[in-house]
Design a protein around this nucleic acid. Structure first.
Lengths: 233, 233
DNA sequence: ATTCGTCAAGAGCAGCGCTCTCGAAACAGT
DNA sequence: ACTGTTTCGAGAGCGCTGCTCTTGACGAAT
């Protein structure tokens, strides 16, 4: 615990940071499949085997990038929410949705890495979970606060949440501390999946040659999804 | 154009079929990134360079698998729709949604290949488009017929489609021959994205440790999305 | 019977992830 | 200040990948 020991650990931390930073740049240009340990090492002026002192495998490097990606979108979402008037829940929902889409459009390969198809043998390490929940927690807070303020006013005629998914909804609410009735929680979960489904469709080319006014269509979609939850606009 | 020439062409077509078939099996077990030309060749008892007589590159093989995947889900959807009573549009929507999910769960890697993040330098070849539209056309037909039968009864209080996306909706309707008003088309497009967003969330692990009753949650979701379009259940 | 197109095979290139060994440097304890 | 230990980068090397090029054999058409 002496100063000298922390000196070595500090240069180690710095090198880890440099590696992930370089890897993230490569990821942004070449995508996850094109990320090469050797190329990263080459750019850093070291030999490929040296990387293994810091990341035991290529997948571990990818895991680090995944965690960073979740944190990046989480931070963007948190800031977008913070910039809104707390009482205007509809505006907060809209701001959060737009922030996610804008980050995804700006970082398509990172988005694909965390919300696309799992890359290798797809065993998501458990330590990515907290970072993965950051955006969801913001979202849950908006819904909870809107509900507690009595501002949620969903359209009539939608089916109620069936009893068979009560346990799931309870588990989901507990994970993100969302204190709302089952019906609200179910619709919130749906809107959440719909939001990411829309972003993924746009980024992964499913809207190609169809939707051109991406922002206009996206805004209309998330407004409708927001109405589904019960936000007023 | 003699018989002998077609004989040669026939063995060629058979070999192409064998290659794609073997490749699909490898894809199903190892995923797209694990698909190796050399492994396919090895299993077929030929040398790797021989494959290049039939597929000019690995990406071309993947493209063939993508087209096959689109056709597979298209066929499943068409059959699911055909087995319903034509007048029961809500049941048809539900059947189509369930068919898509079941196919995706049964063929996760193929689903990831066509609806997940684009694999390489992601330039979707234009000749996959017709196959990609097969399921969408079925879906559009259900919506159109329900609308023409006056059976669509969407919840009140949802925002109307803004004028800014009129052109996009017109283009989308033309692509799949869906003759309905803008509001209906917009909501149908949203439900469509929401459906695939839900399936992707389940397959790509976003529901991990949260939703366990996958079928129950999925049914509730697509029922709600169906209500959004205006189907009655 | 000869010509010509098609094909499988083999060698080979550059790149990849990953492992192992080795010598140098930085650390810790005396 | 001198040990012994740990940490680290470099290098060689293994087996794999996609892909190219050349060679020789076979079959169909002239």
């Amino acid at each position: 615990m002496s100063a000298s020991r922390t000196a070595r650990e500090r240069v180690r931390a710095e090198l880890i940071h440099e590696i992930t930073e370089t890897a993230r740049r490569h990821l942004a240009t070449d995508g996850a499949t094109g990320l090469s340990l050797r190329a990263v090492a080459r750019e850093l002026g070291m030999v490929s085997s040296a990387i293994y002192r810091y990341f035991p495998s290529r997948d571990d490097l990818l895991t680090a990038l995944i965690t960073d990606g979740y944190n990046a979108v989480g931070e963007v979402v948190e800031r977008a929410d913070a910039e809104c008037r707390p009482g205007d829940h509809g505006a907060r929902w809209l701001a959060v949705c737009r922030a996610i889409r804008e980050w995804a459009v700006a970082h398509p390969h990172e988005y694909a890495l965390i919300y696309g198809s799992p890359v290798p043998g797809y065993e998501a390490p458990q330590d990515t979970v907290p970072a993965a929940l950051r955006d969801t927690i913001v979202f849950a807070r908006i819904v909870t606060e809107a509900h507690e303020a009595g501002e949620l006013d969903p359209p009539a005629g939608l089916p109620p949440a069936p009893a068979s998914i009560e346990a799931d909804l309870a588990r989901g609410r507990a994970a993100v501390t969302m204190n709302v009735p089952d019906d609200v929680a179910a619709r919130a979960l749906m809107a959440w999946a719909g939001l990411y489904g829309t972003v993924s469709f746009e980024l992964f080319g499913q809207f190609e040659t169809v939707v051109e006014n991406r922002i206009g269509y996206f805004d209309h979609t998330v407004t409708t999804l927001g109405r589904l939850i019960g936000f007023r606009f």
